[in-house]
Design a protein around this nucleic acid. Structure first.
Length: 315
DNA sequence: TAGGCCATCTGGTCCT
DNA sequence: AGGACCAGATGGCCTA
């Protein structure tokens, strides 16, 4: 019993030493772990500082590997190992999340304020690669409805709406038409926040996107930012690529740009990355596609009866 | 309040 | 032995 107390004592110590463990839940799970230990090992705790096993000579020997006694020393090592493993796991997951963030930034609808979920980021990335492959292999345009449909395949409707909105609004990202009842705030690739009217897209949770929802008339733009910026974005055709073709990926150049928070880099980087062009930032060497804003007139039906969480485009 | 998303802890497995 | 990776469990936060 005294050993249990001491064991809980080190658990408490270990727990209190971890900033991450803040609540009773995690505390409890740690004790659950301890309970697991107690199941087979508490009986062996004998207070010895020594790790060596001892045969008591009276009980019949069991087959199989001997269970080492859970001495204080072993418990301490176990604790240290577990704490270190937790820290590594946190670090690993942070790295994974950083990578996911980098992926978000090269998606065609990056927004600092409206982050795509992990799963949606991966789905959109898959679609983006697929769509760009089609562009390269079949000469499809990035401005047609097919491109948008490919991008949105399998995405949830909120994400589809986001992508559709971003592609329609694009770098110009502002347009206000008749519907001014529910303006949305949209952070553009330039890092500015625009107020725009979603063109009738249903808001979550889940409706149907119909053709007229994405019918864009000659856009009239309203801006709440510097008009010169808007003018800049309105003329946002990237210069034709003149260099040698290289694989359209420059990881270091691409991602390092975003990690630098300089607004200037943000501009050039985001400007390209938010668009269905193959521009890969100022350090990338991918052929640039025309990045003028496409205007979609898309007959989109979403079969939400069948897939309540995913937008399915049907022809 | 339910559901989605997320961070964290944890133990198991594989590899070096 | 120890690290990387993985998946399950758990609870917090947020939103409709």
């Amino acid at each position: 019993m005294s050993e249990m107390v001491s064991v809980h004592g080190w658990m408490e110590e270990a727990l209190s030493s971890q900033d991450e463990i803040k609540d009773s839940n995690q505390r409890q799970s740690a004790f659950d772990m301890l309970s697991g230990l107690s199941h087979e090992e508490h009986g062996s705790i004998d207070g010895e500082e020594d790790d060596e096993e001892e045969d008591d000579g009276e009980k019949p020997k069991k087959r199989g590997p001997k269970k080492k006694k859970m001495t204080k020393a072993r418990l301490e090592r176990f604790r240290v190992r577990r704490v270190k493993a937790n820290a590594r796991e946190r670090t690993r997951m942070h790295g994974l999340n950083d990578a996911l963030d980098n992926l978000r930034r090269v998606m065609p609808c990056y927004s600092k304020t409206q982050k795509l979920s992990k799963i949606e980021t991966l789905r959109l990335a898959r679609n983006y690669i697929w769509a760009l492959s089609e562009v390269l292999e079949r000469g499809q345009t990035t401005e047609g409805k097919n491109f948008l449909e490919m991008l949105c395949k399998g995405l949830s409707q909120p994400t589809s709406n986001l992508v559709a909105g971003c592609l329609q609004l694009g770098p110009q990202s502002l347009f206000l038409e008749k519907h001014e009842d529910k303006p949305h705030m949209c952070e553009s690739s330039l890092g500015h926040t625009y107020s725009y009217q979603s063109p009738g897209l249903p808001s979550p949770p889940y409706g149907n996107i119909e053709a007229h929802h994405l019918h864009l008339k000659a856009p009239t733009f309203k801006t709440v930012v510097d008009p010169s910026l808007v003018n800049h974005t309105l003329n946002c055709t990237t210069p034709p690529y003149e260099g040698a073709l290289t694989p359209p990926l420059s990881i270091s150049g691409n991602f390092s740009l975003k990690q630098d928070n300089s607004p200037e880099l943000d501009k050039s980087y985001g400007f390209r990355s938010h668009y269905p062009s193959l521009g890969l930032g100022s350090h990338g060497h991918a052929p640039h596609f025309q990045t003028a804003v496409p205007r979609y007139e898309i007959p989109i039906d979403i079969a939400y009866d069948q897939y309540p969480h995913h937008a399915i485009f049907t022809e």
